[in-house]
Design a protein around this nucleic acid. Structure first.
Lengths: 301, 301
DNA sequence: CGATCTTACGGGATTCGTAAACATA
DNA sequence: TATGTTTACGAATCCCGTAAGATCG
């Protein structure tokens, strides 16, 4: 079983040309080479495919029977190659990005817009999930890559820091905090706070920071979405300690914000990829775009 | 484009085995060879097909995409090869035999019965046509072979004598002719004759024989079929000069027959094949059976 | 004799197998 | 350390192209 596609191509071309000489020149091989290819195919199939007539070659009935099947095989192979090239050339494909909601809202829209402009054939799904699920998604190959904090040290995954998302305190314009350049957590503790739901990474970070400082805060309201929290702050219900990236995710008009001086309130966000798994062409391209964007727009807008 | 089926086979086997080593041993090649084959396919397709994990290899999503198309291509190729082998091995095929009506009636039934017993997959058509059309059918490839007399010297056809069909005179038992061992045409001319229609080879031969001898006969009746002629003879309407093979074609009970001593009344019947055209496997086998039968049952029953 | 397929043969590329290197669990 | 993939390299094989041979019109 030593067959290839060259023999099939030779056969089809010869059948079409009705001449070994013409077929050979069409395929850019010498005529004896084509004769050999035909003979190899005939030996493999066990039937004579052509009647050699010195003047022209004509298909035998057996050869005519093989015409359609072999043609289809060749077509399907070329189609399969084309499909693979489409994937490799980013003309087609699917890409699933897992990202923290804040990142998904702040960073991804621009990135995806630019990416899709270049590669319109790539279908992109975004899984905006809490930090805890990020690594699971990537590990289980439900996402090609993750964007978020590096929480659990997972040997099957790789982390590459992209930006540091410092948390800021947001407050309405004119609030007493306006005067301080970098308030401490302790200084903020006496104001009522809008906080996100337990389980969100923002809440966890805030929780750890408070615990570490032995502080406690008054919770004015607990909301699920950053944009809701911003709305609450604007309405004067309280202040909120939120990622700086919130600026991009929600309309912060009429609000002021200051960095909070606390180590727990800065997260190193980055790219999470599977160590073993070869990234898909689309994933590679997206990661490249990601790293390019990191340079042009460093550390949280 | 330097691809063959070995690479595809290697890919499918490796995907199934989940290990290059196992796949290699399953395909009876060394493991490095298989690695190379996989790499060749990856280069041709432009995508990485496997994630090498040192412990096992797993398909990438791109590889999974290629699985079905490549599997199908391989299946179709093998099916095409199998189909060709069926033709070559006489498990399938079609065979058209053109033959004189007398041959078709006398010889072919036994021959075809035996042939079909050995090769039940071959579909056999018999074209029983007058001698004049025989060569045309073979020349136009409407028949794989012809059985009949060599009339027109056609350079595109080949003739191989198989048997000599001497014409006999048929007469009712008790007829005056019973006493003669080999009557002459002249001796027969005075009896009324049953003749076949003009255009049939039997009639032509008789016509030439009479013309050559300057004889004339009384035509008692003119019929189309040999069996009709035999019926006429039996009824005593006249005698008939017919091929000896008529014995096999019609019931000749109650009739006697003697060879007629006349050169024109013996026909060399044989095999007519196209010179250029390669006979199909089925035709080759049939011809072989034909020649074997010639030995075991020479010259007209 | 001209056109075309087949055969023969030498050179070059391809591919295979063995052995060593390499990488992970 | 053990297993399994990759790399390296020598050898065998395969394949092509040129040239000569054969055959039919």
């Amino acid at each position: 079983m030593k067959q290839g596609f060259r023999q099939i191509r030779a056969f089809l071309q010869a059948a079409e040309s009705g001449s070994f000489t013409q077929a050979a020149s069409a395929l850019h091989v010498s005529q004896p080479a084509l004769t050999v290819q035909i003979r190899q195919l005939e030996e493999e199939l066990g039937v004579r495919l052509f009647d050699r007539d010195r003047r022209r070659v004509t298909l035998t009935p057996e050869g005519r029977n093989m015409l359609a099947p072999l043609q289809r095989i060749l077509d399907e192979f070329q189609s399969a190659v084309a499909q693979a090239h489409d994937l490799a050339g980013l003309r087609r494909g699917r890409l699933t990005v897992a990202a923290l909601p804040s990142i998904a809202a702040a960073w991804l829209p621009d990135l995806i817009r630019d990416f899709r402009a270049v590669h319109p054939g790539i279908e992109i799904r975004v899984a905006d999930v809490p930090a805890a699920r990020l690594q699971t998604l990537v590990r289980d190959e439900e996402a090609d890559l993750g964007l978020g904090p590096w929480i659990t040290r997972d040997r099957a995954l790789r982390f590459e820091a992209l930006l540091e998302d410092r948390m800021h305190v947001f407050f309405p314009a004119g609030h007493a905090l306006t005067v301080s350049r970098q308030p401490t957590l302790k200084g903020l503790a006496r104001y009522p706070h809008i906080v996100t739901s337990p389980g969100t990474s923002v809440r966890e970070a805030l929780h750890r920071a408070l615990e570490d400082g032995g502080l406690d805060i008054e919770v004015a309201c607990e909301v699920a979405y950053l944009s809701t929290a911003i709305g609450m702050v604007r309405a004067g219900l309280g202040i909120a300690i939120l990622p700086l990236s919130t600026l991009s995710a929600a309309s912060c008009q009429g609000l002021e914000h200051r960095p909070v001086a606390n180590a727990h309130l800065r997260r190193r966000l980055g790219l999470i990829t599977a160590k073993r798994k070869t990234p898909s062409p689309a994933a590679r391209a997206f990661i490249a775009a990601l790293q390019a964007a990191r340079i042009s727009r460093p550390c949280g807008t």
